[in-house]
C-alpha cells in the first residue's frame, strides 16, 4: 500500500507547479515549474514500483526534453511575456467548460470501476523491463529506434537554412553598402563634441546639430536612452527643454505591443 502522506506530497509537487501553465506569464517560469512536475512524476513512478521508469523520467524529461524547451526559449527570446488577456471570444469559457466537463466525466468513469489492486507490486527493475522490451516488444523497440533517427534528421532538415546564393566577401558587401549611399567612414561615437559624454547622448556634427545614429539602437530598444534625455532635448530643440520638466526623467511605460511579445 502507498502511504497517503507520500501520495499527497506527490500530488502537491505535481499539481501546484502544473498550475503555472495556466497562470504564469513568463515562459521560463513555466518551464522550470514543469521540471518540478517531472520530478514529482518520477517520484510517483518509483512509488508505483517502476524505478527504471522513474530514472528514465528524470533523465529524459528533466534532463533532455525540458532542457530542449529552455534552449528554444533562449533562441526565440527569453524575455517573451504573454498577456493572459483572452483574444478569442468565448475561448476561455469553452476551455473551462470543456476541461471541467472532461474531468468530471473521467472521474465519474474511473469511480465506477472497482479494481482490487494486486497484492504485491510489480518489479519495475531495469532487468525485468529489459527482458520484456527485448523479447516481446523487440520489434517495437526497433521501430522506435527508426522513429528517433527520423525525428533527429527531420529536426535537422527543418532548422537548416539552405544557402541559396554564394557567400559574398567582405569587399563585395562594403562596395554594395557604399553604392547604396552608406557613410563610408565610421559613425561618430556618442558624446563627441557634445556637452555630456554619456552613451545615450548623440554626437554633434560640425554645425552643432546632433547625429542621431551615433547612439546605439540597443539603447533605444531597451528604453535606456533617458539618462541624457535632458541634454539631448536641449541640443535638438531648445524649446522642448521648457516643455519637459526636469523631473520628467523617468522610465517610459512599455507599450502594450511590446508586452504581448
Amino acid at each position: 500500500m502507498i502511504s497517503p502522506v507520500l501520495f499527497w506530497s506527490i500530488a502537491a509537487l505535481t499539481v501546484i507547479p502544473a498550475l503555472s501553465l495556466l497562470f504564469a506569464r513568463k515562459a521560463v517560469h513555466i518551464a522550470v515549474s514543469i521540471i518540478g512536475v517531472m520530478i514529482g512524476l518520477a517520484v510517483a513512478y518509483v512509488t508505483l514500483g517502476a524505478p527504471f521508469l522513474g530514472v528514465v523520467q528524470i533523465v529524459v524529461y528533466t534532463g533532455a526534453v525540458m532542457m530542449l524547451f529552455l534552449f528554444v526559449l533562449m533562441l526565440v527570446g527569453v524575455d517573451q511575456r504573454e498577456s493572459l488577456k483572452e483574444t478569442l471570444t468565448g475561448q476561455r469559457w469553452i476551455a473551462f467548460v470543456g476541461a471541467a466537463g472532461l474531468a468530471i466525466l473521467l472521474i465519474a468513469a474511473i469511480s465506477e470501476v472497482a479494481f482490487e489492486p494486486a497484492e504485491e507490486g510489480v518489479s519495475g527493475e531495469p532487468d525485468a523491463v529489459a527482458m520484456l522490451l527485448f523479447t516481446d516488444y523487440v520489434v517495437v523497440i526497433e521501430i522506435l529506434g527508426a522513429l528517433l533517427i527520423t525525428a533527429a534528421v527531420g529536426a535537422l532538415v527543418m532548422t537548416h537554412t539552405p544557402r541559396l546564393r554564394p557567400r559574398r566577401t567582405q569587399q563585395e558587401l562594403q562596395r554594395e553598402r557604399v553604392l547604396a549611399g552608406a557613410n563610408p567612414v565610421n559613425k561618430p561615437m556618442p558624446g563627441v563634441y557634445a556637452r555630456h559624454n554619456a552613451l545615450d547622448v548623440p554626437a554633434l556634427d560640425p554645425e552643432g546639430k546632433p547625429i542621431d545614429e551615433s547612439v546605439s539602437r540597443v539603447l533605444e530598444a531597451r528604453h535606456q536612452t533617458t539618462e541624457g534625455f535632458e541634454w539631448r532635448a536641449a541640443l535638438t530643440d531648445p524649446s522642448k527643454k521648457k516643455a519637459r520638466p526636469a523631473s520628467g526623467i523617468s522610465k517610459p511605460e512599455p507599450t502594450d505591443k511590446e508586452d504581448e511579445r
Binding site: 475561448q91 469553452i94 470543456g98 476541461a99 472532461l102 466525466l105
Partner: peptide, 16 residues
C-alpha cells in the same frame, strides 16, 4: 484545439 477537446469529451461521455 477546443473543438478537439469538446470532441474528446463527447467521446468519453458516450463511453461513460
Amino acid at each position: 484545439a477546443a473543438l478537439i477537446l469538446i470532441g474528446l469529451a463527447g467521446l468519453v461521455a458516450f463511453v461513460v
